[in-house]
Simulated scan of single mutants.
Amino acid sequence: MKLHSALLVALLACVPVAGMAADAAVAVGQAPGKVGAAGRVSAKAKVEAVDAATRTVTFKGEKGNVFEVVAGDEVKNFDQIKVGDVLTVTYAEAIAFELKKGGKGVRERREATDAVAAAPGEKPAGAAGRRMIIVADVTKVDHKAGTVTLRGPKQSRTLKVDDPAKLKNVKVGDQVEVTYVEAVALEIGAK
């Protein structure tokens, strides 16, 4: 079954992750002409109350914060949510840059999204993800300032590079392919 991405985004916006117990991980890697980074954060909150009439679930984070979420009709298996269950929210994102020498590609932006929900009878859960790929032209390289200007299909951006030496092989006319991926997963489980 599909769970609307907007629903997950709305639910995630209601979850004050900073007030919940969270664990996080970050990874960074690079190779000639490539650089990437990825990160993940997970947080938990306990179900304090369930109001079936209004489909409102009251959560309490491990730092004591209390918040409510109204679950629309899109949330399947709502009737299985019980006081004492634990909500786990996991958010992950990654970005990668790859230099394409010679710039023979077309500037473009491609985007895809997908979402899934728990099957009937399973504990309430859902996940949504988005992947975006942008191919941009290198229009300016400023070695002194340590910046590179990229022109994508809709706009130009000047980016500061952490180590200006990484720009030594980047030339006007090259292209950069940027891949950005983000995902959020929500799961209600027993204590």
Rank of each mutant, 00 (worst) to 15 (best):
Ala145Met: 00
Arg130Lys: 10
His143Val: 03
Val35Ser: 07
Ala24Met: 09
Lys144Ile: 01
Val35Tyr: 08
Gly173Met: 05
Ala43Asp: 00
Gln30Asn: 13
Val86Glu: 11
Leu87Ser: 11
Arg110Asn: 12
Glu98Asn: 02
Glu98Gln: 03
Ala31Cys: 02
His4Pro: 03
Arg40Gly: 12
Ala31His: 07
Pro124Thr: 08
Glu111Gln: 14
Asp174Lys: 05
Lys154Phe: 10
Ala21Val: 09
Gly121Ile: 12
Tyr91Pro: 01
Asp79Arg: 02
Arg109Phe: 08
Ile133Phe: 01
Gly36Gln: 05
Pro32Gly: 01
Asn65Thr: 12
Thr54Glu: 07
Val135Ser: 11
Met132Arg: 08
Val9Thr: 12
Lys2Thr: 15
Leu12His: 08
Val17Leu: 12
Val161Thr: 12
Glu98Tyr: 00
Ala21Thr: 15
Val35Ile: 05
Arg157Thr: 13
Val116Cys: 03
Phe59Glu: 00
Met20His: 12
Ala128Met: 05
Lys191Asp: 11
Glu108His: 07
Gly105Ala: 15
Ile134Asp: 07
Arg109Asn: 07
Pro120Tyr: 06
Ala22Asp: 13
Val35Glu: 06
Val26Lys: 13
Pro124His: 10
Lys44Asn: 01
Gly121Met: 10
Val172Leu: 10
Ile188Leu: 13
Lys63Thr: 04
Arg107Val: 12
Ala185Ile: 02
Ala31Thr: 12
Val50Ser: 09
Glu48Tyr: 01
Val86Pro: 00
Ala92Ser: 14
Asp114Cys: 04
Lys82Ile: 00
Gly146Pro: 01
Arg157Gly: 09
Gly105Val: 10
Ala37Leu: 00
Gln155Gly: 09
Val66Leu: 12
Asp85Asn: 11
Gly189Tyr: 06
Lys34Pro: 00
Glu122Trp: 10
Pro124Ile: 05
Lys171Leu: 04
Arg151Ile: 01
Asp174Ala: 06
Val17His: 11
Asp79Gln: 06
Lys101Asp: 08
Phe97Trp: 04
Ala10Glu: 15
Met132Ile: 10
Ala22Leu: 08
Arg151Gln: 11
Val184Arg: 02
Val89Lys: 00
Val89Met: 05
Ala115Asp: 13
Ala118Asn: 15
Pro32His: 02
Pro164Gln: 06
Val41Pro: 02
Leu99Asn: 09
Asp163His: 14
Ala31Arg: 09
Asn65Ser: 11
Ala125Trp: 00
Gly19Asn: 15
Ile95Thr: 11
Val50Gly: 06
Ala22Tyr: 14
